[in-house]
Design a protein around this nucleic acid. Structure first.
Lengths: 205, 205
DNA sequence: GTCTATAAGTAGATAGAC
DNA sequence: GTCTATCTACTTATAGAC
């Protein structure tokens, strides 16, 4: 039986919430303590400093963001099926954690060193495997030639940006087209796959 | 003869730099004063408070980000030429201001009200015009059918994300493929246009 | 382990001399 | 207009009682 309500877990959950919404500089230890329903001193008792607590959350966020990358592409399936699986998995992650990308990218923009100090190797293997497979598909003539980094950027852009701009776009689309932005987000899996498929498939003459 | 070196301009330039790099919560009035080469009190003399100075920069950033949208699509040209012009213009803006998107989206995530209080109508006209034209192209059978909001999200994602992830991707691609990320960014105009063209063009049988 | 009280440092903002 | 000096409030962090 796992104790889910121990103070350490409650603090981490509260810190996750507050840091991701407010950022490192904007978050207050008092906010986190309130959110966790405990005394402010306990934060320091368990995690020593704000920076150490933040690091813990930051690494966790990085793992959440990068976890889907490798796994979807490691299986032995046709290329477009792997793409489809990756898109589905990634949009599920973003649906559950819509604020993660901007939080993560914003903190890197504020302090790029944090990334290099903490992480490094994890992401290499993932990107490396994807690029190898893309080159194979292109060389076999199964998809239209495209530089692998660019394809990754295109795909990631189409996946991530709609969630990142939700606070801006949702009110606009509601007013202008009476569209619920959550419906838009739910349609993304299919839209992104079709768009990518059409962009990459070889013309049949 | 315009005085470019008056204190007000120097403060705005410094504030732009510091706020965009550090965010509202992370920026320090002392930093801005140092960057501008003036005394901290002068900031308050010219702009009263940190929040008012920030608002000034925030509005300016919003204008920079949204300025290209309408203008590219207002001219009377073939659809794909307008798309091309928009892509070129937008990537030029992002090349000059790579940190703007994350700064802007991050601040909205921290405080969504700021957007609604300050802005509102500007963006409507732009988005509205683009959507109308997209519907015309689809109805005329000149491009593959796609929901206009989704096409806009696809395009914006492919344009913006590569700049937003530069601090993360540049070291990875350098190490792994010995690729200079600035070269990647310079190739984006052509890549995005071709990708979009292939995704939207009607198959010739 | 968990609390109260408080120390030490920093931030935005203002008063007032020049 | 521009500076120095200072006020007030807030924030992280710690000391110490229980």
């Amino acid at each position: 039986m796992v104790k889910i309500d121990n103070p350490e877990e409650k603090i981490l959950e509260a810190a996750r919430k507050v840091f991701i919404r407010e950022g490192l500089a904007g978050a207050r230890m008092q906010q986190i303590a309130d959110e966790a329903g405990i005394n402010k001193s306990l934060l320091h008792y368990y995690f020593r400093s704000k920076d150490k607590l933040f690091d813990r959350i930051f690494i966790e966020v990085f793992r959440t963001i990068s976890i889907g990358m490798g796994s979807s592409f490691s299986e032995d399936k046709p290329f477009f099926e792997k793409i489809k699986k990756f898109i589905d998995l990634y949009i599920d992650v973003l649906t559950k954690n819509p604020y993660l990308p901007i939080f993560f990218l914003s903190e890197i923009q504020h302090n790029p060193e944090r990334l290099q100090n903490i992480i490094e190797k994890d992401i290499f293997k993932n990107v490396s495997g994807i690029i190898t497979q893309l080159m194979m598909e292109i060389n076999a003539g199964r998809i239209r030639p495209i530089s692998p980094p660019h394809l990754i950027l295109n795909l990631m852009g189409m996946l991530v940006l709609p969630f990142a701009v939700k606070p801006m776009m949702a009110p606009i689309l509601k007013r202008q087209l009476d569209v619920d932005y959550n419906d838009i987000l739910n349609e993304r899996k299919e839209i992104v796959y079709n768009f990518l498929y059409n962009a990459l498939k070889i013309d049949e003459k």
